[in-house]
Nucleic acid binder design. Structure first.
Lengths: 213, 213
DNA sequence: AAAAATCTTGACCAGTTGGTCAACACTGAT
DNA sequence: ATCAGTGTTGACCAACTGGTCAAGATTTTT
């Protein structure tokens, strides 16, 4: 009776101190490298270097390159959907939406690497997260879109397609993480230094104005 | 006196019929593959397959993988900047901006592969187009931002940061090319079928409303 | 028709990369 | 202190990949 082949990371036994430390060091290094170079552009050696350990040791904790990527995407998706979940049907409509914009922008500011990892994945056709996108994500978006449609019907915000409204919030906020290099280059050193604050102000105005009845 | 090493493609001599045909077949195949898999994720063999020729023949026309990528990016950047160049200081402010939104959206609709190629490049830190972004692109954006600021000062459109306005237009329109998989999955088969038309309507409303004085 | 130029590719090579393995080092429970 | 379980890595391998080359096929020029 041999054990099914499992990496340490996916083992359900209680994890030791060393396991926990190393797994998080590896995931941190993998996030850094994957988000900067994409999946194919990342080598296990790079991750090993970034994590300060040997390649075989990386593969002692994760069965293969794919598994590190999968774990990162899984972790990511929770954080990703959280702000959307927070939209509250009984709150003030405009305020709920503006809060959502600001929360998403805050994620771009604080977690740009996760944003780029996600962008890379979707750009390549989302092969590894197709299920989540078509399932959990779609259901959640449909649910919130219905809430927004309700607000529109009550005349609380301007008439527009709720799905596209959500897309436009994703687009504008994630842009500040995914295209940061371009943003900084175009703004120049000085204006770029507080780009997230000026972006926050701009997006607040745009959506507040754009959704006025 | 040996010729400097040049691929056929970059040779300045008059190009033969076969050269022209094959170079464009290769670039078409390369665009398809690069935009779907990224630079590192693309192998010359894949491009050769897509172009229906052998690998050595690909490398007869282009010195290496890098050169195909470079040529594609060069071609792309022209198309890319064109709509922005079209913004006219003496036109009707709101109309000029809404036209820009629609032109950019049209590019996402007609040239999604180019958009993804560009997105891939910027996501990875734009190593190969840094110069253009910091030079031509920045200058052009600054110029158009000044025009928009003029309109704001005249009270023709709402007060907002012109640079971020441009970013938000890039973000919202390119999103429909770069994240198409996600858009389609979330919208579902039926609503996805005319996604560009509904997007056009939504973005028109959002920016028209958002820029009202 | 023949020579010159251009085009095409099978075979090959060297470097890289994902992943394995056996042997050795460390940790912590007894 | 012991030793079973856990952690670590140098050496290695097979597959892949970017790129070369010489020889032959095709097209164009004369």
């Amino acid at each position: 009776m041999s054990q099914p082949e499992k990496s340490r990371a996916s083992n359900s036994k209680r994890r030791t101190r060393i396991q926990q430390e190393n797994e998080s060091r590896i995931l941190e290094a993998a996030l850094e490298t994957f988000s900067a170079n994409g999946f194919r552009g990342t080598t296990i050696d790079q991750i090993a270097d970034a994590a300060g350990m040997s390649k075989p040791n990386i593969l002692y904790y994760f069965r293969n390159k794919e598994e590190m990527h999968r774990v990162l995407l899984d972790q990511l998706l929770d954080t990703w959907l959280d702000p959307l979940r927070n939209i509250n049907a009984s709150g003030d409509p405009l305020n709920e939406i503006l809060q959502y914009v600001q929360r998403k922008l805050e994620i771009s500011r604080k977690h740009p690497r996760e944003s780029r990892l996600f962008a890379n994945e979707v750009l390549q056709g989302a092969p590894r997260i197709e299920d989540v996108i078509k399932g959990t994500l779609k259901d959640l978006v449909d649910e919130k879109a219905a809430i927004i449609q309700g607000w529109i019907d009550e005349g609380k915000i301007a008439d527009c397609d709720p799905h596209h409204l959500i897309f436009s919030i994703w687009a504008t906020t994630q842009h500040y993480a995914d295209f940061d290099v371009q943003i900084c280059a175009v703004l120049g050193r000085k204006k770029a230094s507080n780009r997230f604050d000026t972006a926050s102000e701009f997006l607040g105005k745009l959506f507040a104005n754009g959704l006025r009845v």
